[in-house]
Design a protein around this nucleic acid. Structure first.
Length: 399
RNA sequence: GGGUAGAUGGCGGAGUGGACAAUCGCAUCAGACUGUAAAUCUGACGCCUUCGGGCUACGGGGGUUCAAAUCCCUCUCUACCCA
Protein backbone atom coordinates (compact mmCIF):
# COMPACT_ATOMS: atom_id res chain seq x y z
CA UNK A 1 0.00 0.00 0.00
CA UNK A 2 1.46 3.35 -0.93
CA UNK A 3 1.23 6.49 1.15
CA UNK A 4 -1.72 7.85 -0.75
CA UNK A 5 -3.68 4.68 -0.19
CA UNK A 6 -2.69 4.62 3.46
CA UNK A 7 -3.90 8.18 3.87
CA UNK A 8 -7.09 7.35 2.08
CA UNK A 9 -7.64 4.41 4.41
CA UNK A 10 -6.94 6.48 7.52
CA UNK A 11 -9.42 9.20 6.75
CA UNK A 12 -12.20 7.26 5.08
CA UNK A 13 -12.31 3.61 6.11
CA UNK A 14 -14.92 3.03 8.81
CA UNK A 15 -15.04 6.78 9.38
CA UNK A 16 -18.37 8.21 10.33
CA UNK A 17 -17.50 11.87 10.32
CA UNK A 18 -14.61 14.23 10.78
CA UNK A 19 -14.99 17.55 12.58
CA UNK A 20 -14.75 20.31 11.61
CA UNK A 21 -14.18 18.87 8.13
CA UNK A 22 -12.47 16.17 6.16
CA UNK A 23 -10.73 18.78 4.05
CA UNK A 24 -9.35 20.52 7.12
CA UNK A 25 -7.85 17.33 8.42
CA UNK A 26 -6.35 16.48 5.05
CA UNK A 27 -4.70 19.88 4.98
CA UNK A 28 -3.29 19.38 8.44
CA UNK A 29 -1.97 15.93 7.49
CA UNK A 30 -0.06 17.42 4.63
CA UNK A 31 2.00 19.50 7.05
CA UNK A 32 5.40 18.16 7.97
CA UNK A 33 4.72 18.23 11.69
CA UNK A 34 3.64 14.92 13.20
CA UNK A 35 0.15 14.93 14.55
CA UNK A 36 -0.56 13.91 18.11
CA UNK A 37 -3.51 11.55 17.98
CA UNK A 38 -5.28 9.93 20.86
CA UNK A 39 -8.10 7.65 21.77
CA UNK A 40 -9.40 7.15 25.29
CA UNK A 41 -10.23 3.82 26.85
CA UNK A 42 -12.36 3.76 29.94
CA UNK A 43 -11.27 0.94 32.19
CA UNK A 44 -14.82 -0.01 33.09
CA UNK A 45 -14.39 -3.72 32.49
CA UNK A 46 -11.59 -6.22 32.90
CA UNK A 47 -11.06 -6.46 29.16
CA UNK A 48 -11.63 -4.81 25.83
CA UNK A 49 -14.16 -6.15 23.40
CA UNK A 50 -14.53 -6.21 19.65
CA UNK A 51 -16.20 -2.81 19.66
CA UNK A 52 -12.88 -1.30 20.69
CA UNK A 53 -11.34 -2.69 17.53
CA UNK A 54 -12.79 0.01 15.27
CA UNK A 55 -11.07 3.02 16.84
CA UNK A 56 -7.97 1.00 17.68
CA UNK A 57 -7.41 -0.04 14.09
CA UNK A 58 -8.07 3.52 13.12
CA UNK A 59 -5.20 4.59 15.36
CA UNK A 60 -3.06 1.93 13.72
CA UNK A 61 -3.83 3.48 10.34
CA UNK A 62 -2.48 6.79 11.57
CA UNK A 63 0.50 5.22 13.25
CA UNK A 64 1.43 3.65 9.93
CA UNK A 65 1.54 7.17 8.52
CA UNK A 66 4.09 8.18 11.12
CA UNK A 67 1.93 10.08 13.56
CA UNK A 68 2.30 10.06 17.32
CA UNK A 69 -0.28 7.79 18.88
CA UNK A 70 -1.34 8.25 22.46
CA UNK A 71 -3.37 5.64 24.25
CA UNK A 72 -5.20 7.25 27.09
CA UNK A 73 -6.38 5.06 29.90
CA UNK A 74 -9.23 6.94 31.52
CA UNK A 75 -8.55 5.79 35.02
CA UNK A 76 -9.82 9.10 36.35
CA UNK A 77 -12.84 9.47 34.08
CA UNK A 78 -13.62 5.81 34.56
CA UNK A 79 -14.39 6.51 38.13
CA UNK A 80 -16.94 9.14 37.23
CA UNK A 81 -18.65 6.88 34.75
CA UNK A 82 -19.41 8.01 31.23
CA UNK A 83 -23.10 8.84 30.93
CA UNK A 84 -22.97 8.00 27.22
CA UNK A 85 -25.60 5.53 26.19
CA UNK A 86 -26.59 4.97 29.74
CA UNK A 87 -30.18 5.58 30.43
CA UNK A 88 -29.35 4.93 34.03
CA UNK A 89 -26.54 6.23 36.11
CA UNK A 90 -23.53 4.01 35.99
CA UNK A 91 -22.19 2.87 39.28
CA UNK A 92 -18.91 4.42 40.23
CA UNK A 93 -15.86 2.23 40.18
CA UNK A 94 -13.28 2.24 42.90
CA UNK A 95 -9.71 3.12 42.12
CA UNK A 96 -8.69 -0.46 42.76
CA UNK A 97 -11.18 -1.85 40.25
CA UNK A 98 -10.15 0.72 37.69
CA UNK A 99 -6.47 -0.12 38.00
CA UNK A 100 -6.97 -3.83 37.74
CA UNK A 101 -9.14 -3.31 34.67
CA UNK A 102 -6.61 -1.18 32.89
CA UNK A 103 -3.74 -3.55 33.57
CA UNK A 104 -4.77 -5.75 30.70
CA UNK A 105 -5.41 -3.02 28.17
CA UNK A 106 -1.92 -2.25 26.99
CA UNK A 107 -1.26 -5.91 26.30
CA UNK A 108 -4.41 -6.18 24.22
CA UNK A 109 -3.91 -2.96 22.32
CA UNK A 110 -0.33 -3.88 21.50
CA UNK A 111 -1.66 -6.50 19.12
CA UNK A 112 -2.36 -3.66 16.70
CA UNK A 113 -0.54 -0.62 18.00
CA UNK A 114 3.23 -0.62 18.18
CA UNK A 115 4.62 0.49 21.53
CA UNK A 116 8.21 0.04 20.45
CA UNK A 117 10.09 0.58 17.22
CA UNK A 118 10.81 3.87 15.46
CA UNK A 119 7.45 5.46 16.14
CA UNK A 120 6.27 4.05 19.44
CA UNK A 121 2.84 4.82 20.80
CA UNK A 122 2.60 6.26 24.28
CA UNK A 123 0.32 5.13 27.00
CA UNK A 124 -0.88 7.63 29.55
CA UNK A 125 -3.29 7.69 32.47
CA UNK A 126 -5.49 10.70 32.92
CA UNK A 127 -5.43 10.51 36.69
CA UNK A 128 -1.91 11.91 36.39
CA UNK A 129 -3.16 15.43 35.78
CA UNK A 130 -6.78 15.23 36.81
CA UNK A 131 -5.93 14.18 40.34
CA UNK A 132 -4.15 17.46 40.74
CA UNK A 133 -7.06 19.64 39.73
CA UNK A 134 -8.35 21.76 42.56
CA UNK A 135 -11.95 22.62 43.10
CA UNK A 136 -11.35 26.11 41.79
CA UNK A 137 -9.70 24.68 38.65
CA UNK A 138 -12.77 22.63 38.04
CA UNK A 139 -15.09 25.58 38.50
CA UNK A 140 -12.94 27.51 36.08
CA UNK A 141 -13.19 24.73 33.51
CA UNK A 142 -16.91 24.36 34.04
CA UNK A 143 -17.42 28.01 33.24
CA UNK A 144 -16.68 27.20 29.62
CA UNK A 145 -19.92 25.33 29.26
CA UNK A 146 -23.56 26.02 29.90
CA UNK A 147 -26.13 23.74 31.44
CA UNK A 148 -28.13 24.10 28.23
CA UNK A 149 -25.18 22.74 26.27
CA UNK A 150 -25.06 19.72 28.49
CA UNK A 151 -28.72 18.83 28.62
CA UNK A 152 -29.12 18.80 24.87
CA UNK A 153 -27.41 15.43 24.85
CA UNK A 154 -30.01 12.92 23.85
CA UNK A 155 -29.36 10.52 26.69
CA UNK A 156 -29.88 13.31 29.18
CA UNK A 157 -33.04 14.27 27.33
CA UNK A 158 -34.20 10.68 27.55
CA UNK A 159 -33.60 10.62 31.25
CA UNK A 160 -35.40 13.90 31.74
CA UNK A 161 -38.35 12.52 29.84
CA UNK A 162 -38.34 9.34 31.87
CA UNK A 163 -37.85 11.27 35.08
CA UNK A 164 -34.62 9.44 35.80
CA UNK A 165 -31.97 11.23 37.81
CA UNK A 166 -29.08 13.06 36.26
CA UNK A 167 -26.34 13.69 38.75
CA UNK A 168 -24.20 16.75 38.71
CA UNK A 169 -20.97 14.82 38.36
CA UNK A 170 -22.21 13.37 35.09
CA UNK A 171 -22.08 16.84 33.59
CA UNK A 172 -18.45 16.89 34.60
CA UNK A 173 -17.56 13.89 32.52
CA UNK A 174 -17.30 15.56 29.13
CA UNK A 175 -15.50 18.40 30.86
CA UNK A 176 -12.79 16.15 32.20
CA UNK A 177 -12.48 14.26 28.95
CA UNK A 178 -12.14 17.57 27.16
CA UNK A 179 -9.49 18.72 29.59
CA UNK A 180 -7.46 15.64 28.64
CA UNK A 181 -7.22 17.02 25.12
CA UNK A 182 -5.94 20.31 26.49
CA UNK A 183 -3.28 18.74 28.68
CA UNK A 184 -2.06 16.29 26.07
CA UNK A 185 -2.11 19.01 23.45
CA UNK A 186 -3.51 16.69 20.80
CA UNK A 187 -4.30 17.43 17.17
CA UNK A 188 -6.85 14.70 16.70
CA UNK A 189 -9.08 12.55 18.83
CA UNK A 190 -10.42 9.27 17.55
CA UNK A 191 -13.44 7.56 19.05
CA UNK A 192 -16.67 5.76 18.35
CA UNK A 193 -19.57 7.76 17.09
CA UNK A 194 -21.20 7.54 20.50
CA UNK A 195 -18.32 9.58 21.91
CA UNK A 196 -19.05 12.50 19.64
CA UNK A 197 -20.44 14.79 22.30
CA UNK A 198 -17.58 14.25 24.71
CA UNK A 199 -15.03 14.70 21.97
CA UNK A 200 -16.58 17.90 20.73
CA UNK A 201 -16.56 19.31 24.25
CA UNK A 202 -12.84 18.73 24.16
CA UNK A 203 -12.63 20.55 20.89
CA UNK A 204 -14.42 23.54 22.41
CA UNK A 205 -12.12 23.53 25.40
CA UNK A 206 -8.98 23.38 23.30
CA UNK A 207 -10.28 26.28 21.27
CA UNK A 208 -11.14 28.29 24.36
CA UNK A 209 -7.97 27.58 26.31
CA UNK A 210 -5.34 27.18 23.62
CA UNK A 211 -6.95 28.86 20.65
CA UNK A 212 -6.16 26.03 18.28
CA UNK A 213 -7.97 23.36 16.36
CA UNK A 214 -8.43 19.84 17.61
CA UNK A 215 -9.83 17.53 15.00
CA UNK A 216 -12.33 14.88 15.90
CA UNK A 217 -12.75 11.65 13.97
CA UNK A 218 -15.63 9.36 14.77
CA UNK A 219 -15.63 5.76 13.68
CA UNK A 220 -18.76 3.89 12.78
CA UNK A 221 -20.35 1.71 15.36
CA UNK A 222 -21.15 -1.91 14.89
CA UNK A 223 -24.91 -1.71 14.54
CA UNK A 224 -27.54 -3.94 13.06
CA UNK A 225 -29.94 -2.89 10.34
CA UNK A 226 -32.23 -1.12 12.80
CA UNK A 227 -29.32 0.93 14.07
CA UNK A 228 -29.15 -0.82 17.38
CA UNK A 229 -25.70 -1.06 18.82
CA UNK A 230 -24.31 -4.56 19.24
CA UNK A 231 -23.85 -4.73 22.92
CA UNK A 232 -22.57 -6.96 25.60
CA UNK A 233 -26.10 -7.22 26.92
CA UNK A 234 -27.22 -9.07 23.80
CA UNK A 235 -24.34 -11.46 24.25
CA UNK A 236 -23.13 -10.68 20.77
CA UNK A 237 -20.06 -8.81 21.88
CA UNK A 238 -16.94 -10.74 22.71
CA UNK A 239 -13.86 -9.91 24.67
CA UNK A 240 -10.75 -9.59 22.57
CA UNK A 241 -8.98 -12.08 24.79
CA UNK A 242 -11.78 -14.66 24.71
CA UNK A 243 -10.95 -18.11 23.40
CA UNK A 244 -10.69 -18.51 19.61
CA UNK A 245 -13.78 -20.74 19.65
CA UNK A 246 -15.80 -18.14 21.53
CA UNK A 247 -14.77 -15.30 19.27
CA UNK A 248 -15.39 -17.31 16.13
CA UNK A 249 -18.73 -18.65 17.30
CA UNK A 250 -20.03 -15.34 18.53
CA UNK A 251 -19.26 -13.65 15.26
CA UNK A 252 -21.00 -16.47 13.42
CA UNK A 253 -24.11 -15.64 15.44
CA UNK A 254 -24.14 -12.07 14.21
CA UNK A 255 -26.85 -11.23 11.75
CA UNK A 256 -25.88 -10.99 8.12
CA UNK A 257 -26.11 -7.22 7.91
CA UNK A 258 -23.09 -6.93 10.18
CA UNK A 259 -20.79 -8.77 7.80
CA UNK A 260 -19.77 -5.84 5.64
CA UNK A 261 -19.51 -3.20 8.41
CA UNK A 262 -17.58 -5.77 10.42
CA UNK A 263 -15.14 -6.45 7.62
CA UNK A 264 -14.58 -2.76 7.06
CA UNK A 265 -14.20 -1.73 10.67
CA UNK A 266 -12.60 -4.62 12.43
CA UNK A 267 -10.33 -6.10 9.80
CA UNK A 268 -7.83 -4.65 7.35
CA UNK A 269 -8.80 -6.86 4.47
CA UNK A 270 -8.42 -4.83 1.27
CA UNK A 271 -11.42 -2.61 0.81
CA UNK A 272 -11.73 -3.66 -2.84
CA UNK A 273 -11.96 -7.28 -1.75
CA UNK A 274 -14.70 -6.34 0.72
CA UNK A 275 -16.66 -4.55 -1.99
CA UNK A 276 -16.35 -7.67 -4.12
CA UNK A 277 -17.70 -9.82 -1.29
CA UNK A 278 -20.56 -7.38 -0.84
CA UNK A 279 -21.42 -7.48 -4.53
CA UNK A 280 -21.28 -11.25 -4.73
CA UNK A 281 -23.44 -11.61 -1.66
CA UNK A 282 -26.05 -9.27 -3.10
CA UNK A 283 -26.12 -11.07 -6.43
CA UNK A 284 -26.45 -14.41 -4.69
CA UNK A 285 -23.14 -15.63 -6.02
CA UNK A 286 -21.70 -15.87 -2.54
CA UNK A 287 -23.47 -17.60 0.32
CA UNK A 288 -23.52 -15.14 3.25
CA UNK A 289 -22.32 -17.82 5.62
CA UNK A 290 -19.10 -17.98 3.64
CA UNK A 291 -18.64 -14.23 3.94
CA UNK A 292 -19.39 -14.40 7.61
CA UNK A 293 -16.88 -17.18 8.03
CA UNK A 294 -14.27 -14.92 6.42
CA UNK A 295 -15.07 -12.23 8.96
CA UNK A 296 -15.09 -14.62 11.90
CA UNK A 297 -11.82 -16.19 10.89
CA UNK A 298 -10.13 -12.89 10.22
CA UNK A 299 -11.11 -11.37 13.54
CA UNK A 300 -10.19 -14.54 15.40
CA UNK A 301 -6.82 -14.47 13.69
CA UNK A 302 -6.35 -10.83 14.64
CA UNK A 303 -7.05 -11.55 18.28
CA UNK A 304 -5.08 -14.79 18.37
CA UNK A 305 -3.34 -16.13 15.27
CA UNK A 306 -4.18 -17.72 11.98
CA UNK A 307 -3.51 -21.23 13.16
CA UNK A 308 -5.89 -20.94 16.09
CA UNK A 309 -8.49 -19.26 13.88
CA UNK A 310 -8.24 -22.16 11.49
CA UNK A 311 -8.84 -24.64 14.24
CA UNK A 312 -11.77 -22.65 15.61
CA UNK A 313 -13.32 -22.60 12.17
CA UNK A 314 -13.06 -26.35 11.69
CA UNK A 315 -14.46 -26.92 15.15
CA UNK A 316 -17.37 -24.64 14.46
CA UNK A 317 -18.43 -26.38 11.29
CA UNK A 318 -17.95 -29.79 12.80
CA UNK A 319 -20.03 -29.07 15.86
CA UNK A 320 -22.78 -26.87 14.50
CA UNK A 321 -23.17 -27.96 10.94
CA UNK A 322 -22.40 -31.64 11.25
CA UNK A 323 -23.62 -31.96 14.82
CA UNK A 324 -20.43 -33.56 16.00
CA UNK A 325 -19.07 -33.35 19.47
CA UNK A 326 -16.42 -30.72 20.09
CA UNK A 327 -12.87 -31.85 20.71
CA UNK A 328 -12.63 -30.01 23.98
CA UNK A 329 -15.31 -30.85 26.50
CA UNK A 330 -15.47 -30.01 30.14
CA UNK A 331 -14.73 -33.16 32.07
CA UNK A 332 -16.22 -34.21 35.35
CA UNK A 333 -15.23 -36.88 37.77
CA UNK A 334 -18.31 -38.60 39.06
CA UNK A 335 -18.65 -41.78 41.03
CA UNK A 336 -19.51 -44.64 38.72
CA UNK A 337 -22.96 -45.46 39.95
CA UNK A 338 -26.59 -45.00 39.05
CA UNK A 339 -27.77 -41.42 39.21
CA UNK A 340 -30.87 -39.52 38.26
CA UNK A 341 -30.21 -37.74 34.99
CA UNK A 342 -31.30 -34.46 36.60
CA UNK A 343 -28.71 -34.83 39.31
CA UNK A 344 -26.01 -35.36 36.73
CA UNK A 345 -27.09 -32.20 34.91
CA UNK A 346 -26.66 -30.25 38.11
CA UNK A 347 -23.41 -31.90 39.10
CA UNK A 348 -21.90 -31.07 35.74
CA UNK A 349 -23.15 -27.50 35.94
CA UNK A 350 -25.25 -27.86 32.82
CA UNK A 351 -28.29 -26.81 34.83
CA UNK A 352 -28.50 -24.71 37.93
CA UNK A 353 -31.67 -26.17 39.42
CA UNK A 354 -33.72 -29.32 39.23
CA UNK A 355 -36.69 -27.47 37.77
CA UNK A 356 -34.46 -26.19 35.01
CA UNK A 357 -33.10 -29.64 34.36
CA UNK A 358 -36.52 -31.20 34.23
CA UNK A 359 -37.70 -28.61 31.76
CA UNK A 360 -34.71 -29.21 29.54
CA UNK A 361 -35.35 -32.94 29.56
CA UNK A 362 -39.07 -32.61 28.89
CA UNK A 363 -38.33 -30.33 25.96
CA UNK A 364 -36.05 -32.88 24.43
CA UNK A 365 -32.93 -30.87 24.97
CA UNK A 366 -30.87 -33.46 26.77
CA UNK A 367 -28.88 -36.22 25.13
CA UNK A 368 -26.74 -38.91 26.64
CA UNK A 369 -24.21 -40.20 24.13
CA UNK A 370 -26.33 -38.78 21.34
CA UNK A 371 -29.58 -40.35 22.48
CA UNK A 372 -32.39 -38.00 23.46
CA UNK A 373 -33.70 -38.65 26.95
CA UNK A 374 -37.26 -37.55 27.62
CA UNK A 375 -37.91 -39.15 30.98
CA UNK A 376 -36.79 -36.90 33.77
CA UNK A 377 -37.03 -39.66 36.33
CA UNK A 378 -34.67 -41.88 34.43
CA UNK A 379 -31.63 -43.15 36.20
CA UNK A 380 -28.44 -43.24 34.26
CA UNK A 381 -25.64 -45.64 34.76
CA UNK A 382 -22.56 -43.48 34.92
CA UNK A 383 -19.69 -44.91 32.96
CA UNK A 384 -16.42 -43.41 32.01
CA UNK A 385 -16.52 -41.45 28.78
CA UNK A 386 -20.23 -40.83 28.44
CA UNK A 387 -21.10 -37.43 27.06
CA UNK A 388 -24.06 -35.41 28.28
CA UNK A 389 -25.29 -32.77 25.89
CA UNK A 390 -27.70 -29.97 26.69
CA UNK A 391 -29.06 -28.13 23.72
CA UNK A 392 -26.65 -27.52 20.93
CA UNK A 393 -23.72 -26.06 22.69
CA UNK A 394 -23.33 -27.37 26.20
CA UNK A 395 -21.44 -30.56 26.76
CA UNK A 396 -20.06 -32.47 29.70
CA UNK A 397 -17.96 -35.59 29.71
CA UNK A 398 -17.77 -37.99 32.59
CA UNK A 399 -14.35 -39.30 33.46
C1' G B 1 -37.62 22.86 54.75
C1' G B 2 -42.88 21.96 52.55
C1' G B 3 -45.80 19.11 49.13
C1' U B 4 -46.82 15.17 45.51
C1' A B 5 -45.87 10.57 43.21
C1' G B 6 -43.46 6.07 43.43
C1' A B 7 -40.41 1.24 44.90
C1' U B 8 -43.18 -5.53 41.49
C1' G B 9 -39.31 -11.29 38.60
C1' G B 10 -32.38 -10.29 34.85
C1' C B 11 -34.48 -5.46 32.69
C1' G B 12 -38.76 -2.48 31.11
C1' G B 13 -43.59 -2.43 32.74
C1' A B 14 -49.16 -4.35 34.06
C1' G B 15 -51.86 -5.56 38.28
C1' U B 16 -54.77 -1.67 43.45
C1' G B 17 -58.35 -7.18 48.66
C1' G B 18 -59.52 -13.62 46.62
C1' A B 19 -59.52 -16.45 39.85
C1' C B 20 -51.55 -14.00 41.10
C1' A B 21 -45.82 -17.62 40.96
C1' A B 22 -48.11 -12.52 39.12
C1' U B 23 -50.75 -9.88 31.66
C1' C B 24 -47.22 -8.16 28.22
C1' G B 25 -42.43 -6.66 25.85
C1' C B 26 -37.05 -7.46 25.98
C1' A B 27 -33.36 -10.79 27.51
C1' U B 28 -32.60 -16.06 28.50
C1' C B 29 -33.24 -21.50 27.59
C1' A B 30 -35.15 -25.76 24.65
C1' G B 31 -37.45 -27.66 20.05
C1' A B 32 -38.47 -27.24 14.68
C1' C B 33 -36.51 -25.24 10.39
C1' U B 34 -31.91 -23.46 8.03
C1' G B 35 -26.20 -21.50 5.26
C1' U B 36 -25.03 -20.31 11.12
C1' A B 37 -25.19 -20.13 17.70
C1' A B 38 -28.86 -15.50 12.08
C1' A B 39 -34.09 -14.83 10.80
C1' U B 40 -38.78 -17.15 11.51
C1' C B 41 -42.12 -20.38 14.06
C1' U B 42 -43.37 -23.42 18.66
C1' G B 43 -42.73 -24.12 23.73
C1' A B 44 -40.55 -23.04 28.43
C1' C B 45 -39.04 -19.34 31.75
C1' G B 46 -39.03 -18.72 41.15
C1' C B 47 -37.44 -23.11 44.03
C1' C B 48 -38.48 -28.13 45.85
C1' U B 49 -41.41 -32.52 45.07
C1' U B 50 -42.75 -39.40 46.61
C1' C B 51 -45.99 -35.43 40.70
C1' G B 52 -50.97 -35.26 44.70
C1' G B 53 -48.76 -30.92 46.00
C1' G B 54 -45.49 -27.91 49.04
C1' C B 55 -42.36 -23.57 50.05
C1' U B 56 -40.46 -18.61 49.39
C1' A B 57 -41.50 -13.95 46.75
C1' C B 58 -44.16 -7.84 44.58
C1' G B 59 -38.31 -2.10 48.92
C1' G B 60 -37.62 -3.43 55.02
C1' G B 61 -40.55 -4.13 59.55
C1' G B 62 -45.29 -4.36 61.94
C1' G B 63 -50.76 -4.58 61.65
C1' U B 64 -56.15 -5.33 59.70
C1' U B 65 -58.62 -9.66 57.31
C1' C B 66 -60.98 -16.28 56.59
C1' A B 67 -57.75 -14.12 52.55
C1' A B 68 -52.97 -8.70 50.99
C1' A B 69 -48.45 -7.23 45.57
C1' U B 70 -53.21 -4.84 46.52
C1' C B 71 -55.90 -1.70 52.88
C1' C B 72 -53.49 0.75 57.52
C1' C B 73 -48.97 2.25 60.41
C1' U B 74 -43.84 2.84 60.29
C1' C B 75 -38.89 2.82 58.32
C1' U B 76 -35.51 3.14 54.07
C1' C B 77 -34.70 4.81 49.23
C1' U B 78 -36.01 7.61 44.61
C1' A B 79 -38.20 11.17 41.27
C1' C B 80 -40.99 15.58 40.52
C1' C B 81 -42.98 20.45 42.15
C1' C B 82 -42.56 24.68 45.56
C1' A B 83 -38.88 27.23 48.80
Amino acid sequence: MNKKEKTEQAITRCVNKIYPSLGGLEKRMKQKKKMRIYCGYDPTGPTLHLGHLFPTLKLADFQALGHQIIILIGDFTGMIGDPTDKNETRKKLTRKEVLSNSKNYKKLISKWIDFSGPNPAKIVYNSKWNDKLSFSDIIELASNFTVQQMIVRDMFQKRIKRKKPIYLHEFLYPLVQGYDSVVMDVDLEVGGNDQLFNMLCGRDLVKALKNREKFVLTTKLLTDSSGKKIGKTQGKMVAIDASPETIYGTIMSWSDDLIIPGLIGSTRIDIKEIRRIEKDMKSGKLNPIKAKAVLAKEITAMCHNLQKADKAEKEFFNVFQKGEIPTKIKEFKIKKDNFLLIDILIKTGLCSSKSEGRRAILQGGVRVDGEVKKDWKEKIRVKEGIVIRLGKRKFAKII
